[in-house]
């Protein structure tokens, strides 16, 4: 049983949720994205109470509203870079827009890798692709789970800047869950678990 404090975040704002290992950071993130059901309490995103939604509606809600960035950038290996973005569009809002997908890749500086297999990307490119995928369905909320923890200072800086910049550009609220001390100086709003 893990309890979390109440917190609120306004639209287009940024929030850092910190805490040591075992404090349930990932659990909270999965609750926020509707991948896990909680026993008590409620989560309200853009006026929708997640605990009141059926499994099917929750899947749809997640696809339309939430973009997830995981600590390990992993992709569907049988399809190429561009197709990974298209799949996120497909599951996010049901249809594919190649032009949007391509411009997103260009925006993140990996437009030239569109036809490559995801296995051929370097670590930094994989991080970029993971961010691009999270933004593919134009979410209102981007949730990032330890996006910088395993990266060196330069790459951590790059990933944070991209997340920040893309969230602003796409009008998305950003919540980062991390124990990474380097991020503390970047956020005004913080919740400690």
């Amino acid at each position: 049983m893990i309890s979390f404090p109440d917190f609120e975040i306004s639209k287009n704002d940024r929030l850092l949720i910190t805490g040591n290992s075992g404090t349930g950071k990932t659990t909270l993130l999965h609750l926020l994205s509707g991948l896990l059901m909680m026993q008590k309490g409620e989560i309200i995103i853009s006026g929708s109470n997640l605990s009141a939604l059926s499994q099917q509606k929750l899947d749809k809600f997640r696809g339309r509203n939430i973009g997830l960035v995981f600590q390990q950038p992993k992709f569907i290996s049988s399809i190429n870079v561009l197709e990974n973005i298209k799949v996120a569009q497909l599951f996010g809002f049901g249809k594919v827009n190649t032009q949007d997908a391509t411009s997103l890749l260009n925006e993140l500086g990996i437009g030239d890798k569109a036809q490559k297999s995801t296995n051929e990307l370097s670590g930094g490119e994989r991080q970029r692709l993971a961010i691009a995928r999270a933004l593919a369905a134009k979410p209102t909320l981007v949730l990032a789970d330890e996006p910088t923890s395993s990266l060196d200072d330069d790459n951590a800086e790059m990933v944070y800047e991209l997340l920040h910049q893309e969230a602003v550009k796409n009008g998305a609220t950003l919540i980062v869950v991390s124990h990474d001390q380097r991020l503390k100086s970047k956020f005004e709003n913080m919740v400690a678990l």
Binding site: D59, I76, F91
Partner: peptide, 11 residues
């Protein structure tokens, strides 16, 4: 991963 992107169970 696909589920996290919004794919439903039936998909």
């Amino acid at each position: 991963l696909m589920r996290s992107m919004g794919a439903s169970r039936s998909q």
